[in-house]
């Protein structure tokens, strides 16, 4: 079928397909090697050196890891991150699903209603951070609204007890539509016949939800769980723009701690060591979730 010629055309179909597939993936792979894997390996190497960006790096063994471990700010920051991650993602899992269920119902004007919920996904993160910073201002909208129900004026972002919850609220508010779209897509891929069959068998809406929707939605649910935790772990811009990690470090999440160590104190090696700890944490967390996922019978 194929003319035997030298070069590309001369190869067997199988070999050619092998090469073709590899060549399709190659540009993306090279890019990730240059901008993700190589920097990662560099960061790992750097975590064993003392480096201040000016003088050449000096090998220091595990000194950076010891310094990070003995730094009380790192421990504080780790727990801030954990609180933020779960504080944001657990409400997201449920509220995003609730939103998707609401938007999956038949109702007049559904395309417009969906648009109103989903288009904020397209909003720039910086704009979101600035708008909320304005709203949390002591003279801002949040206090005014709460003042009308008798709550006193609070400087939300400058009070230790309220700064982190204030940031968590923004995270949730921003995450619901994003994960709502993903849930909605999952809901739409469940064939209608399944629910019809359940109804014929006498299942009410609640039973049908528990025994049909949830099991069939499991892959989506677990995807949302992993992605929401990882994206909450990566939060950086909001603390940077709104609180600069304050007051008293109560909003200094780990990525902000790393940024500060590297670019405010010029301790590159220590920042790299902290990065490695964060990466290991993310990796372990994802692994646990994937394990649970497999046990849940979803692959």
């Amino acid at each position: 079928m194929f003319r035997q010629k030298a070069g590309w055309r001369g190869l067997s179909l199988q070999t050619r397909l092998c090469w073709a597939g590899f060549l399709f993936v190659l540009p993306a792979l090279l890019h990730l090697i240059a901008f993700k894997f190589y920097p990662m390996v560099e960061a790992f190497r750097l975590s064993f050196y003392t480096y201040d960006l000016m003088s050449p790096p000096v090998f220091h063994g595990l000194e950076n890891y010891r310094a990070v471990w003995n730094n009380p700010l790192f421990h504080q920051s780790f727990w801030v991150s954990v609180k933020y991650m779960f504080g944001v993602s657990i409400p997201e899992w449920f509220l995003a699903l609730a939103l998707a269920l609401l938007l999956n119902r038949r109702m007049p004007g559904r395309p417009l209603i969906r648009l109103a919920y989903f288009f904020p996904i397209a909003m720039s993160q910086i704009v979101v951070a600035l708008v909320w910073k304005f709203m949390y201002n002591p003279l801002g909208v949040v206090n005014t609204v709460l003042g009308s129900v008798g709550v006193g004026r609070i400087n939300w972002l400058a009070t230790e007890e309220t700064a982190l919850p204030a940031l968590i609220l923004i995270g949730i508010w921003r995450g619901i539509p994003l994960f709502g779209v993903i849930y909605l897509a999952g809901l739409q891929s469940i064939p209608k016949e399944y629910h019809e069959a359940a109804t014929i068998d006498g299942a009410g809406p609640w039973q049908s939800f528990i025994h049909v929707t949830i099991p069939l939605l499991m892959p989506t649910i677990l995807f949302v769980m992993v992605m929401s935790l990882l994206s909450a772990m990566k939060v950086f811009l909001n603390p940077l723009v709104m609180t600069e990690g304050g007051p008293n470090g109560t909003t200094r999440v780990l990525p902000y701690f790393i940024y500060e160590t590297a670019f405010a104190y010029h301790r590159m090696g220590e920042a790299a060591a902290a990065s490695m700890v964060l990466f290991a944490f993310a990796f372990a967390l994802t692994l646990i979730q994937l394990r649970l996922l497999r046990r849940g019978g979803v692959e």
Binding site: P39, I258, A262, F263, S275, L278, F279
Partner: peptide, 9 residues
């Protein structure tokens, strides 16, 4: 991988 982690490299 948070982008900030590998900012310097």
């Amino acid at each position: 991988l948070p982008l900030e982690i590998v900012l310097v490299p």
